[in-house]
Simulated scan of single mutants.
Amino acid sequence: MATRNIYKTAVDEDVQPTNTCPECDGRVTTNTHETVCDDCGLILSDQAIDPGPEWRSFPEDQSNPERTGAPLTPSLHDQGLSTTIDKHHDGKGRSLSPQKQRQLRRLRREQGRAQCSTTRERNQMRGFYEIRRIVSALGLGRSIRDQTCALFTTAQNEDLLHGRSLEAIAAGCVYAISRCNSLPRSVAEIARFAKCNEDSVRNAFAVLNTELGLPTPPPTPRQFIPQLASALCLSPEVRHRAVEFTEQARKQGIDNGCNPAGVAAACLELASNDAGEHVLQCELAAKADVSTATLRNHRDALAEKLVETQ
């Protein structure tokens, strides 16, 4: 299935014309009003779009003429266009009387009802709130949050939310965007902060990946090395040695069909033992969300292959 573009591309309106006059091959100058040839005076175009502000600001002015407001954000159901009504102060920072506060309380109630007038908007608000909470708990950036909200909107437009939990779809979107950006986040790690179990997250990701055709490459053990090494406070030498072990495991085919986090933990254990920085297996397995038996199996298989190649 072809991958669908879930993000809007902006159209560049400031396309500059050619720098050569078509009549005399002279130099062309473009200002905010027109494009004119400096040699023959031919006007190539006029009434150009001025993307700049129509106001001017000076340091000595007390008033602020800027009125553009906050930028639009796809992480809110209304993209941040709704008005915020304060509780205790007006626009100039002055305290409000009790009568005015009661009036603004009624206005906030009516505004909240008007913002989510349909079930679709309420579901979108709930889904975006869950996405922002999970992304914040995982320590991901704003770009990941915006991409996840855009993916949730696409899933809602494709009617993928019917009969499914909003929390599961939101967690599945976070995992899908993490996979698309090659971020080492496991299903168990996302399910720890989500309001659903691991099976629900996997099912939601499978639906998104199948129906939308997401470009999700399979995770590799090398992607988990920096995260695990930082969590265990290992030295850069151990980290570089573990990366070399992951490359050897890939060439030998040891990581085929295996949990990449478990293979990365096994490589870190071998690298730490070679460098004299011994790490407890239970602690390493807990950071990688695998069992100690899985860690030992991957370690023994990797050590055996390394001995054969030496």
Score class of each variant (00 low, 15 high):
P217T: 05
A206Y: 06
V187C: 11
K251V: 15
N209G: 00
V201H: 12
L208V: 07
S186D: 02
R202V: 15
R192P: 00
A204Q: 04
N209L: 04
V201A: 14
A261W: 00
N256L: 11
C258A: 15
K195I: 06
S235G: 12
N203S: 12
R185V: 10
N259H: 09
K195H: 13
S235T: 15
F193V: 15
E237F: 03
P215R: 08
P236A: 06
A249M: 02
P226G: 08
T246N: 04
A206H: 13
A249L: 02
K251D: 15
T210F: 05
A249N: 00
L212S: 05
H240I: 13
E237R: 05
A188V: 09
C233F: 09
E237L: 09
S200I: 07
C258P: 00
L234K: 02
L228T: 07
C258Q: 15
P184H: 02
Q223Y: 03
T220S: 14
L212T: 04
P217N: 07
V207T: 10
T210V: 03
P221G: 10
V243Y: 05
P219C: 05
R202I: 15
P236W: 04
A242K: 11
A249I: 01
L208R: 04
E189Y: 03
E198G: 06
F224P: 00
T220C: 03
E189L: 08
V201T: 12
R185W: 06
T246E: 02
V187F: 08
R222E: 15
E237P: 01
E198L: 11
E247D: 14
H240T: 13
A194D: 00
E189M: 10
E244Y: 06
R192N: 13
I190G: 00
S230D: 13
H240F: 07
P215T: 04
P226V: 09
Q223L: 11
T210G: 03
L212A: 07
L228H: 08
N203F: 03
R239F: 02
A206F: 04
R239P: 00
R192S: 15
A191C: 09
I254T: 12
